[in-house]
Design a protein around this nucleic acid. Sequence first.
RNA 1: GCGCCCAUGGCUCAAUUGGAUAGAGCGCUUGAUUACGGAUCAAGAGGCUUCGGGUUCGAUUCCUGAUGGGCGUGCCA
Length: 563
Amino acid sequence: MNIIKQIENSIKQVMTNSLKSCIKKQLLPDIKVTEISIEKPREKEHGTFSCNLAMIIVKQARMSPKKISELLIEQMDFNGTYIEKAVSAGPGFINFFLKSDWLYDNTRYILDNKGTYGQSDYGKMQKVNVEYVSANPTGPLHMGNARGGALGDLIANVLDKAGYDVHKEFYINDAGNQIDKFGKSLEARYLQEKLGEKQVAFPEDGYQGIDIINHVKEYIKSETTDLQTVDEKLRQKTLVKYALPKNITAIKNGLARYGITYDLWFTEQSLYDSGSVDKMITYLIDKGHTVEYDDALWLKGSVMNSEKDEVLKRSNGYPTYFAADLAYHYNKFYERKFDRAINLLGADHHGHAIRMEGAMEAIGIKKEKLDIVIFQLVRLLRDGEVAKMSKRTGKAISLDDLLDEVGVDAARFFFNMKQSGSHLDFDLDLAKKQTNENPVFYVQYAHARICSMLRILEEDGVKINNEEKLDFSLLIEKEEILLMEKLAEYPNEIVISANTLEPSRMTRYVHDVAALFHSFYNACRVRGIENKLQQQRINLVKATKVVLQNSLELLSITAPLKM
RNA sequence: GCGCCCAUGGCUCAAUUGGAUAGAGCGCUUGAUUACGGAUCAAGAGGCUUCGGGUUCGAUUCCUGAUGGGCGUGCCA
């Protein structure tokens, strides 16, 4: 149940009926309305919900919005709703004030449902494929992957709770050019180990990372056959076959530590093995979407709204990453029948994203079915300065380094504090601080405080499991009402996040819940008060705990019992 | 050059996707505990939403121009 949506619908119904009645009584001309929108006003004095219908139909009604709103209100019938009154305000808004029952009912609902509170059927079990991180397996995970991971995982979680059938996927780029490069880099390091560093040139565009050298050293320790004498191709292939699975395992372990697991690790190579890439290319040729020049096969720019053509098959006969990615998307939509696909990409890939979106129609997929979420790049800050290198390893800071330094909870929270479109400065010092400056601790403290409160009450001999007939009618303090209102917003926050694919609002939401709880805590005592009120407050505290737990779980952040 | 993204108090970000008096956190100032965890709370100061022009009942939001920044513009992925 999503009580906000439910009430919005009931208000829409009231508005529609009232409009009909106005027209019937010829108070208003026959007005056509396509969509009535209900909003949540910023100001408390403007009610719990408001509607701007009167202002929208000004032209059709040929009347002042103020007058229209008054007519509409006169014809309203609130029977069977939570509405207490409707008031015309400002330029012509109609503000709705609700009876407190809606909050009491919802709080009861939270305790009846606990872990499933927040779940809705908004998505109607549409099959959605969410692909994120998909890091190059030629090296360790970097900060872009870390942000994409936290964001993608939260998007997947939010869609799941909003009632979509979500599949989480990692696309392993284990074919093509960069694997060649990986092999050549390994080979060069191998020969350098064997013959001396100066004797063998390292490829100009090779992978410089120390992890390549480590792979080779380990390989030499365990090697049975000396690769110096074998054929170049076989040597590279052998080294790749040794090192690539190790890298993939490291990525899997790193992400698992980060709290991310996938339904499927899809390999690019499988698209070649099954002939899907060739089929894709043939299909595009048949459709007349391609053109040949400079010994290469190109996808026409015109079919993807681009000025430039895009290479599908290189002059050396190898298909490009772009061709494989088209085959991959064909696979998602046609072979696995997803209704929707969501890809997360760093801003450094937005060129690819635009071309992919453009090319969807060319392979027979409606472009609305593919959502590419571009997130801006990350800067790490330490002592107010940009931090590029890890202090410990001297290399670029990897996900593992970050988790060692600030922990999973802080990383997950910080990467989701900002909208994907904005650049993100990750303050390492702040993430480590165990003070009120750090929002993660603020939120977790609220949860720990609730736990310790309930523990103490129990030690006092107070019954804290009194959920048979839940009554909240004594909760009338401002702090109690505000807290209950915030708890009621939870399911809708999830729906909005799923809808916009912008779930950073969830970190703000959980922070708000914590803040309102702390206010409540300071204003309303629970311990040592009259029994009836005490029971109601205990149950409010427990409902708060449920919402904190659920939203922290959504973010993959722990909800500590004490700190 | 062209394309995409961004610009909001000192700092980091919001603004229900076009709504009412632009909100939070940090920092700053003042105050609160013989009581459930002071890792908390209450209050205050701080804004020409980068700058022009346009669209309309109404613009931080949409269009357009300028300025400043990030990224892209490969037979890389």
